[in-house]
Simulated assay, not measured.
Amino acid sequence: MEFKDIFTKYEAIVAEVDSAFNKVAEQADDGIKCHKGCSDCCHALFDLTLVEALYLNHKFNEKYSGMERSQILERADEADRQIHKIKRNAFKASQAGKSASEIIKEISLARVRCPLLGTEDSCDLYESRPLTCRIYGTPMNIGGEAHCCGKSGFDKGKQYPAMNMDVLQNKLYELSKEISDSINSSYKELSEMLIPASMALLTDFTMEYLGARTSKKAEPEPEPEPLEVTPQACSTCSEDKSACADCNYSVSLGQAPEKD
């Protein structure tokens, strides 16, 4: 299943984000500490929007097969079990009365190794990595609050250019809605799905899984045009057949009545 046009739009957003990252890096002095071999963001817990999950799944299926694919999927399965446990504990904490802010803080401190993080601490799908991975090292504005990587060199209290995550998320939701609309999904909230990277790799995103409705209502058949009747001569008299209704005889053995 392909969403070529929508993926092209997504890649345009990726290009914008990469450009913005470079601009922030230029203006942020020595605040951004991202370098080859650093994998701090590869252990953060975050979810992907539908369009990101489908794109990552598509690129993974394009690139990997055989033993390499199996190894990554094994890591994805392990990561997914860890994430499920963390979210289950968070739910239990909320039922026990713990505040949302406390739960969110605990989740933000959770560490789960990304299944795409290879043995040499490098991303196995780096060119197609999600947007969160691309901007992790920059200051981020999320719901009006500032966030940044724990390994960054930004000074507290000092102002820096920041990525507006709310605007970025809205763009991703719009593309996700395009996907949902394009397949006429029966799931009303499909475009609002949030999916861990591990599940994005493990899932077989079939049309059935996405609730696609491809059947169309049959168009009504056009009504037949009225037939044109051309009067024809009757075989028993000189009148045309339209006059038979007024005739006062019935035909018997093919004999025509004698005329007065």
Rank of each mutant, 00 (worst) to 15 (best):
D5N: 12
A12W: 03
V14K: 05
E16W: 00
A20V: 03
K23P: 00
D29F: 12
H35M: 11
D40Q: 14
C41W: 01
A44E: 15
L50P: 00
V51E: 05
H58S: 12
N61V: 04
K63C: 03
L73P: 10
R75S: 15
D77V: 02
A79Q: 07
A90Y: 05
A90M: 11
A93P: 02
S94I: 03
E102P: 13
L109H: 15
L109P: 03
R113F: 04
L117K: 10
R129Q: 08
R134I: 13
N141K: 15
I142D: 08
K156F: 13
Q159C: 03
Y160P: 06
P161A: 07
N164Y: 02
N164I: 01
M165K: 05
V167W: 01
N170R: 02
K171Y: 01
L172D: 01
S185D: 04
S186W: 01
K188G: 02
E192Q: 09
L194I: 01
I195G: 00
A200C: 01
L202E: 06
T206P: 06
M207V: 06
Y209D: 08
A212F: 04
K216L: 11
A218K: 10
E228V: 15
E228A: 14
C234N: 08
D240F: 06
D240V: 06
A245V: 09
D260G: 11
